[in-house]
């Protein structure tokens, strides 16, 4: 008679058991802030379409300490998400070839930061002088 009795270990609380998993859950939960931020922007758009007074009220609401605090936190979450995303992007795309050689991962990651930097500068320029 077989005495086999394989023991299956429970998964409960798995994400607290390794710092890698904690960082993964953090990365995934940044989506909540990005989602809320999108809703806030949508509401702003609706306010804009319902006249000047409504729009101004929305602008005032955006200046409340709570709103500013939320934006700071959401900004932190978005930056964290971008950093983690930039570091895994080379895994998601097909290998980038240049002159018949694979472009090293570090260069792809650096390229994304440079690209993002340029976009921010252009946007900033548009806001300041546009």
């Amino acid at each position: 008679m077989s005495t086999r009795k394989p023991y299956v270990r429970p998964m409960a609380g798995w994400w607290l058991k390794n710092p890698v998993y904690v960082r993964y859950i953090l990365r995934e939960s940044t989506a909540v802030f990005v989602g809320i931020y999108a809703v806030i922007l949508l509401v702003g758009l609706l306010r804009l379409s319902s006249g000047e007074a409504a729009w101004n009220n929305w602008l005032i609401a955006m200046q409340s300490p709570g709103a500013i605090l939320f934006h700071v936190v959401a900004m932190g979450a978005a930056v964290y998400h971008s950093v983690t995303w930039f570091s895994v992007a080379p895994k998601v795309m097909p290998p980038l070839m240049f002159n018949g050689e694979k472009v090293p991962v570090a260069k792809i990651v650096a390229g994304q930061y440079i690209f993002a930097g340029i976009i921010y500068l252009v946007l900033l320029g548009l806001i300041l002088w546009g």
Binding site: N18, V20, Y21, Y24, E28, V88, K91, V92
Partner: peptide
Amino acid sequence: CTLVGYCSD
């Protein structure tokens, strides 16, 4: 896969 990425580490 949800890209935890630990497999590669």
